[in-house]
């Protein structure tokens, strides 16, 4: 084991917190999606670290699937956001407040 598993967890946790913070703070829809992507990657890191730590390949396969699914997620999300941009002309989440 190059690095003790605990450090990997720490890294992933900070990365996860960063992603969440970014998703919550930025006032731009795309940046929110980006923040969520970072959180997904943090999870991937834990998986890789765990599979190395446990010496079993399940973690790796899991990461491959995560990458694929994250890709589909981004495509669907961006499609809706672009669609929204074409309709309302803005990325700012504050504009989308019609539903009471």
């Amino acid at each position: 084991m190059i690095a003790p598993f605990r450090d990997i967890l720490l890294l992933a946790a900070t990365l996860f917190a960063l992603g969440a913070f970014c998703a919550v703070v930025r006032r731009n829809l795309i940046m929110i999606v980006l923040g969520i992507e970072i959180m997904l990657n943090a999870a991937a890191i834990v998986f890789v670290g765990a599979s190395l730590h446990l010496n079993n390949l399940d973690g790796q396969t899991f990461v491959l699937f995560i990458l694929a699914v994250a890709a589909t997620e981004v495509s669907v999300g961006l499609a809706i956001i672009v669609y929204a941009f074409r309709r309302t002309g803005s990325f700012d989440p504050r504009h989308f407040n019609l539903l009471r």
Partner: peptide
């Protein structure tokens, strides 16, 4: 309930 989306994310977290 009618707050902006990001407030909700914050609340969840």
């Amino acid at each position: 309930q009618t707050g902006m989306v990001q407030y909700r994310l914050l609340a969840i977290f």
